[in-house]
């Protein structure tokens, strides 16, 4: 079994321990490597998570979401600039879709933020959605933990916000900024069931366009009627206008993000969010690990399953057989490393 989860989680390989030390001293090379190691749950990623938790400094996680083309990346680029002027270190997780066919991806969010590329106080990382069950969420949530541990004060997660895993990621954020644009007014109705109901702050970007007022009023009305916006006693969702390209409204937006940050600290919501975020990460890691056993069980049973289906065997029989096979493999690995070289012990289960 390749999925080797060491019994002693406290043991880091020397190279990974060095890497963490380098990352804590601000080496972007080391941080970049650690983020790669955290992308998929395995022994190494779990040992890294185990070690970096103690360095967590309670960074504000800001989710930026909204319809494609609303100008999210450009806006994030401007928000980075304003945060930097205020002395914060900023990390960005930019999520772009993968092709479901080739699983390849072409990620261009970063393009709009490249002016900050050489600023040592800014770290931008692109993540493809990968089309994997929970795969994106694990990588993104683990990246948040890493940035938090390595001294970034503001962590911005940018995503289109459609699909379950992207919504998961958004729920890990302290502050959610929903970005829309003029002309998208009618779409708000369609969006309501999705990202429109999770925002703490709403932004009409491209406000230099003539239709901006209409969209603003439409949203303003919807907010008043409490048709949109995340529920949090004591916080009324805010509505702002920006023009990222012209650099307008950015200061006010960042002021509001900061105001929300103070609000969640005052009400204890911030700590609660961190607990939720980590519980979610733990759950997603377990799901991702179990999914591998399911894959493996099916792999091992391929011929048998095909034969059974061709022979018109009832589906529940096949389901039960695959389930038993997956559970057996999982149990064997969890119980204790009996498979020779790769010992797989999930702590607490052995």
């Amino acid at each position: 079994m390749q999925l080797a989860i060491n019994r002693v989680m406290g043991v880091l390989s020397p190279s990974v321990a060095t890497l963490i030390e380098e990352a804590r001293r601000g080496s972007i090379r080391a941080i970049g490597r650690i983020l790669t190691l955290l992308e998929e749950p395995d022994q190494t990623s779990l040992s890294i998570l185990q070690h970096i938790y103690r360095y967590s400094r309670g960074a504000q996680v800001i989710g930026v979401t909204g319809i494609p083309g609303a100008g999210k990346s450009t806006l994030v680029g401007k928000i980075i600039g304003e945060f930097r002027r205020r002395g914060y270190r900023v990390a960005v997780v930019a999520i772009d879709p993968s092709s479901p066919l080739t699983r390849g991806s072409l990620m261009g969010d970063r393009l709009r933020m490249q002016e900050h590329a050489t600023d040592p106080g800014v770290f931008i990382r692109s993540l493809p959605t990968r089309g994997l069950k929970g795969g994106l969420s694990v990588a993104a949530l683990a990246a948040i933990e890493a940035f938090d541990a390595f001294g970034y004060d503001k962590i911005i997660v940018e995503t289109v916000g459609v699909g379950q895993s992207e919504v998961d990621v958004m729920h890990a954020a302290h502050t959610i900024v929903v970005v829309t644009m003029p002309g998208a007014g009618d779409d708000i109705q369609a969006l309501k069931a999705g990202v429109m109901e999770i925002g703490d702050i709403y932004v009409v970007n491209k406000s230099d366009k003539p239709e901006a007022r209409q969209t603003y009023e439409y949203l303003s009305f919807a907010l008043e009627k409490e048709e949109v916006g995340r529920e949090a006693p004591g916080w009324t969702p805010r509505l702002l206008k920006t023009s990222a390209v012209m650099g307008q409204g950015i200061k006010e937006l960042v002021d509001t993000i900061e105001e929300h940050h103070r609000f969640i600290h005052k009400t204890g919501l911030a700590a609660k969010k961190v607990v939720e975020r980590r519980a979610l990460l733990a759950k997603l890691i377990v799901e991702s690990i179990i999914a591998r056993y399911v894959d493996e069980a099916f792999g091992g049973l391929v011929e048998r399953i095909v034969k059974a289906i061709e022979g018109n065997e009832p589906l529940p029989n096949i389901v039960m057989e695959a389930l038993r096979e997956a559970a057996k493999r999982l149990y064997e690995d969890v119980r204790s490393g009996t498979d020779g070289g790769s010992k797989a012990n999930i702590p607490g289960c052995s």
């Binding site: 972007i28 699983r103 390849g104 990620m107 261009g108 709009r112 490249q114 590329a117 050489t118 990382r125």
Partner: peptide, 29 residues
């Protein structure tokens, strides 16, 4: 073409300095 070959591709846009490209390469690993 690289994307269609299944690679994860990051494009950083026009008129970059070599330093910007190097930082992007390292941050993205």
């Amino acid at each position: 073409a690289l994307r269609d070959a299944g690679f994860e591709v990051i494009y950083t846009g026009l008129r970059q300095t070599p330093e910007q490209v190097a930082y992007a390469a390292v941050q993205e690993d």
